[in-house]
């Protein structure tokens, strides 16, 4: 849905000489079906990832939620299938969210970007709670020249996305996203940055519908724009 995010990520990674591949057989991590309880259907989709990345050394996703799905739930999803479970555990061991890979594996905190704007950061729930991502995006943002990072009030509150929850319990989800956008607005930031397009699609969808002048960007997009300009 957001090719510009994938492109920004590969452009940043390529700067460090990382050899990149995009195995076409992958589809979706299966989380929408898994979270709704349809595990057979989730497995059908998850299998494409197990197959796609069998030969890769590292798997990097621009999403804490998809990465969290692989880390937190794939072993459960394949617990009754020893061969697949083995593959799932191996996939989990090599899968990283983008900012984790950049900071913890490559050791990069300063990508050399300049982005002279007032920015606030939404810490996505799955990245934070399932993977323990707390400092990595902050480190990357703090090194961006000209960037003024302002704290988001009640940052840890979920934005209300939750996959099918946003549609199934749309009024509750709507109340949650409205509060999130209200908090973003209160910071006076021009840009909201995050590490998960699910949350960002939800938040930007509300911002767009309300006609508010806040730009919503994935961290990879912001960094890539900052090194390209």
């Amino acid at each position: 849905m957001y090719p510009r995010v994938g492109e920004a990520m590969v452009r940043i990674l390529a700067r460090y000489g990382v050899q990149l591949d995009f195995p076409k057989v992958q589809t979706c991590c299966g989380q929408p079906a898994f979270n709704s309880g349809y595990w057979d259907d989730a497995r059908a989709s998850a299998r494409t990832l197990l197959e796609a990345f069998d030969d890769s050394d590292f798997v990097i996703a621009p999403s804490g939620s998809c990465t969290g799905m692989i880390h937190h739930y794939y072993p459960k999803l394949f617990e009754n299938d020893p061969a697949m479970l083995d593959k799932a555990v191996r996939l989990k061991e090599k899968t990283y969210e983008f900012s984790q890979f950049l900071v913890n594996v490559l050791g990069v905190e300063d990508v050399g970007a300049t982005f002279p704007h007032k920015v606030t950061y939404h810490p996505s729930c799955h990245g934070t709670r399932l993977l323990g991502i707390k400092d990595e995006p902050m480190k990357l943002l703090q090194h961006v020249r000209g960037l003024e990072l302002v704290p988001l009030p009640d940052a840890e509150l979920c934005c209300g996305f939750g996959g099918t929850f946003a549609v199934k319990m749309s009024d509750i989800s709507g109340a949650m996203v409205s509060e999130k956008v209200h908090n973003v607005e209160s910071t006076g930031a021009e840009v909201l940055v995050g590490i998960d397009m699910g949350c960002l699609m939800n938040i930007s969808g509300n911002i767009h519908a309300e006609g508010k002048p806040i730009r919503v960007m994935h961290l990879a997009e912001l960094l890539n724009e900052g090194v390209s300009s």
């Binding site: 957001y2 749309s170 989800s173 709507g174 996203v177 519908a209």
Partner: peptide, 12 residues
């Protein structure tokens, strides 16, 4: 359910 509170981005 979605569009009551949000706009939906189109498929690129």
């Amino acid at each position: 359910g979605w569009t009551n509170y949000r706009d939906l981005p189109e498929i690129p």
